[in-house]
Design a binder for these strands. Sequence first.
DNA 1: CATGAATGAGGGTTCATTCAT
DNA 2: AATGAATGAACCCTCATTCAT
Lengths: 196, 196, 196, 196
Amino acid sequence: MRVPADERRRALIQAAIEVVAEHGIEGATTRRIAERAGSPLARLHYCFSSKEELIVAIFESLANDQFEAAVHIRPGVGLGRAAASMLRQLAAWIDREPTFARAQVELVFWIARQKDSMASKVYQMAVDVFAERLREGMRDDDDPNLVELFAKMIAAYGDGMVVQGVAFGHKGIREDLLDTTAESFERLAEAHRLVH
Amino acid sequence: MRVPADERRRALIQAAIEVVAEHGIEGATTRRIAERAGSPLARLHYCFSSKEELIVAIFESLANDQFEAAVHIRPGVGLGRAAASMLRQLAAWIDREPTFARAQVELVFWIARQKDSMASKVYQMAVDVFAERLREGMRDDDDPNLVELFAKMIAAYGDGMVVQGVAFGHKGIREDLLDTTAESFERLAEAHRLVH
Amino acid sequence: MRVPADERRRALIQAAIEVVAEHGIEGATTRRIAERAGSPLARLHYCFSSKEELIVAIFESLANDQFEAAVHIRPGVGLGRAAASMLRQLAAWIDREPTFARAQVELVFWIARQKDSMASKVYQMAVDVFAERLREGMRDDDDPNLVELFAKMIAAYGDGMVVQGVAFGHKGIREDLLDTTAESFERLAEAHRLVH
Amino acid sequence: MRVPADERRRALIQAAIEVVAEHGIEGATTRRIAERAGSPLARLHYCFSSKEELIVAIFESLANDQFEAAVHIRPGVGLGRAAASMLRQLAAWIDREPTFARAQVELVFWIARQKDSMASKVYQMAVDVFAERLREGMRDDDDPNLVELFAKMIAAYGDGMVVQGVAFGHKGIREDLLDTTAESFERLAEAHRLVH
DNA sequence: CATGAATGAGGGTTCATTCAT
DNA sequence: AATGAATGAACCCTCATTCAT
């Protein structure tokens, strides 16, 4: 009978993610989370010793399940174009799942306050996913030193887009911004192209 | 006797920023803010009609006082170099005043949830400050259409840096990231240079 | 310069009456009263040592100015018809000035709690006005013992109408109720008619 | 364990009634009510979702428990005598439970300000109880159209008696008033008697 | 094991009142 | 004498959490 217990944890975690996304951390009350999960309030404290523990559990869940599926890169397309494409795909994902994207950014702030070390571990996970994908898109004459850099720039720009999206409602001039940055990625990769 | 009133507003705003940075939005209660400012709770509602108004005032303070003082552009230096320089100065400010910077980003989330329209107004304030400074740095053959774009990119990158800074504790590899982006700004402006 | 001070008291009293009528006693805050009177808040406590004193002053004002003008009786019309007519006029006044009528009833409760004796004095004033008018309408063969009774019945029915009006919004079946009661007044006077 | 919950609701309702009667609506704070009921403040909001709901519950309690128990009509006694008797019983109840009676009238004012529609629903509850009892007392030749009318008159007169009782301290001349009105009820029913 | 019932602590806000000028 | 500035106390309500079963 371990499985039901695990399922209940999972359901609560998923509910917590959704509630944080919709109402922010301050609006993520235990009642709302329990209600969303269709579980009695007391169960939340039966499965997790505190609200804090539940929110930390969100990150473990994110690491295992969520991030990998969103980005695909055509192998050998070149680092600049890979980065440009990835940025667009990230932007598309943010548009597709804005609540989820927002929740993630908010949780970075929250978790840094609770458990400083956890924040960097979690953030790095996302960067690693980006970097791995970028490597798949590299050509022979691309500079490998750019990969980590690009990954972090993409991550940072993603966060920036989320914040601006929150402010401006995800509509409007974002497209220009995207083109421009993508363009600069390609330019940059080109400039750093290795001579053989 | 107007001045003391203003000073008290300022003190409350400063306290609010600090409390948000330390405890997050969820922990930024009116009581804590008042206590930090060394003022009775009722004064907060005497100076600001609501907590929301206080939060909005934070943005005004940031835009009017902080950003304006933090960023200086040499006139006529050229749009690309102006943008590059501005990005660095913004990064320096984020390092110098991580408290302010973090608070600002968190508050964007909060304010968007309270009053959607307010968020864009408030975010635009910062963008406007950046744009104005950029215009001062323009040369004759710079493309004016790039100004708003650059301003928003700088803002977005700033937010991204803040989030990454929260995650990684403001130490480390950020310098490379900065160089790269600054470089891309210059490149971009060059490419869009007008023909006379 | 005594007059301005008196005028200010009067203005505050009038404002208080209006505010109580609109918002009830619980909604009659000092701020609202001062605002309605167009006076600074502090003046209220300069003219009246407390909110309680102001509300007590309302009754003195009512005694002097308000009640007498509302009811007129044709002399010699007979006690039953006079009472019937008076009831209708009272009802009309309640319709015309519902907020004022409500305020008066609410204040009876309030003042009874503050100063028990004052309540009966004030209520009796209204009864006396009714009784006096009724006497003007008497015929020779009317029973004088009925006068005080009718006056109190009218007062009580007036209060009852106010309460029911509050509940049902002053519309509807009240007319029937009125006819019926008026009819019963006439019947009663007839039955008690003196034999000469 | 349902019963204790119900008892606690009842205790809070009873406490609320007493506090309203003692301190008026303005003085009927949740704290005072909870304290009077000997319960922690939070329990009030656990049993009733809001203060408004508690106040509404007072009316239900009055209509269902108090009035029903207070008024008994001998079947077939005739509408006029039934109404007359009911008025006397209501008066007796007001004397017996002045606390309840005063609270009820004050609350009509309060509830009308919170939610206009609720006031009529709540007032009608009491009228319905009266009407039902009156119907039990009807004879074949009584006019059924009088029932609702009588019920409302009784309610209105009851309210009037309460207000006068508040003013005069429940002593004195009320008895005459009662006789007179009761008499008029009987007269009226007689006059409307149906012909078969 | 699981949960309905219960609550102390604290949330944002408004009040009548007083102070300093 | 007159009032803008200021505030302690209290408002209704909701929170995360812990009991009792």
